[in-house]
Each structure stands twice: as C-alpha cells, then as structure tokens.
Amino acid sequence: MAGRPLNATAASLLGFLHEGPKTGWDLVTTAQERIGKFWSLTTSQVYRELSAMERDGLIEAGETGPRARKPYALTDDGRRAFADWLERDPGPENIRHPLLLTVAFAEHLPAHRLVEILAHYRAEHERQLSEYEQLLASHVLPDYPAATVEFGIAYERAVLSWLRGMDERLGGAVNAADRNAPTTDPDVR
C-alpha cells in the first residue's frame, strides 16, 4: 500500500467491499445501518477515503452507472491492507458524548433545563435499548455482529443506570434553583 497508513474509516469501507462491489452511496448506507450506532462516518469522509484508496491501489472503480455512481471493488492490495489493519491492536477508545460535555458545564445551566435534557436522553436511550433487544431477539445476526449488538445493549443499560443516578443527584435541585433564579419580570421583585 502506497502512502498513508490505513485508518479505521477506510478499513471499514474495505471490510464492506469484501461483500462485493458497492458505490459510495451504497457504502454510506451500509455504514449507517451496520456501524452507525458506534462508529460515525460522514458522506464526505466516505468519498474522500474512496478517492484516496483508489489512488493508493486498494480499490478500483467500475464503470459509471446511473446518477454518475461508480461501483468500487477491492484489489489484492486492498485485501492485504484490510487484513493488516484488522490484525493491529485497535488502540484506545475515545469517548465523545455530547451529553457528558453539557453535564460537565451544567452549573451554568438552569436546573430545570438540565432535567429536560436528561429526560430527552433517557427516552432516546430507552428507545435504542428496545431496538437492540428486538434486533438480538430476531436471531438473524451472525455471531460477531450479534456481539456488537450485545455491547450496544450493555452500553444502553449503563447509560440508563447513570441517568437514574443523575436523577438522584439532582433531587430537589430543580425546585431550589427555580426559587433562587433571578427574574427578568419587572413586576416581580
């Protein structure tokens, strides 16, 4: 492989291309469906990686089809690069959780707004947990994809447990904060 080391986004695209040729759009859709819950990639990243991988000889483009879409296929170099990447140590994870960033600065937020935000996240995580549990119960997943869904279930349960702890931590903070909050109404002094 010429040039740069293979990154995780490029490697995931090569992994999907093991199933056969796919267009950039097919790869975006496949990534969103299969790994979108735990690995984010944007459409622009996919097309940028496809260009770089084609330039590096890891994939080759087929004939342009409808809507100027080109199917890409793995080359032998692409298969080797993917195998090399897959055998590497994945490295440390990096938690990027928008809610945790908000909570880190929550002292600057009215308590009732924090409660609203937490309630929204709770509903989203309950929905996602239910979706994962239904997917796992369907018994249509091979072993390794099922293992990623099991991780999703454990993660959702952990987040919901943490959210319950936040509810306890806040306790009566909403009412106390609302009683002490400055008012902008000139008639209330």
Results as ranks from 00 to 15, higher is better:
2 A>T: 14
3 G>M: 04
5 P>H: 05
7 N>Q: 10
10 A>H: 00
11 A>K: 00
15 G>F: 01
16 F>A: 11
16 F>Y: 09
18 H>C: 12
25 W>A: 13
25 W>P: 03
27 L>I: 02
37 K>G: 10
38 F>W: 12
43 T>G: 04
43 T>A: 08
45 Q>A: 09
47 Y>G: 03
48 R>I: 03
50 L>C: 01
56 D>H: 12
67 R>M: 06
68 A>I: 08
71 P>N: 07
71 P>E: 02
72 Y>E: 00
73 A>G: 10
74 L>H: 01
76 D>M: 08
79 R>K: 15
84 D>S: 11
85 W>Q: 08
86 L>P: 01
87 E>A: 13
88 R>F: 03
88 R>E: 13
91 G>F: 00
92 P>I: 03
94 N>V: 14
100 L>I: 05
101 L>T: 11
104 A>Y: 03
109 L>G: 06
113 R>P: 01
116 E>K: 10
117 I>V: 14
120 H>E: 10
122 R>Y: 01
123 A>Y: 08
125 H>A: 00
125 H>L: 02
126 E>Q: 15
127 R>F: 06
128 Q>V: 09
129 L>W: 02
130 S>L: 06
133 E>G: 04
137 A>G: 10
139 H>T: 07
141 L>F: 10
147 A>R: 15
148 T>R: 09
149 V>G: 00
151 F>V: 11
153 I>M: 09
154 A>S: 13
155 Y>E: 13
156 E>P: 06
157 R>H: 05
161 S>H: 15
162 W>N: 08
168 E>W: 07
171 G>A: 15
172 G>H: 13
174 V>G: 00
174 V>P: 01
180 N>H: 14
182 P>D: 06
182 P>H: 09
187 D>Y: 11
188 V>E: 04
188 V>A: 06
189 R>L: 08
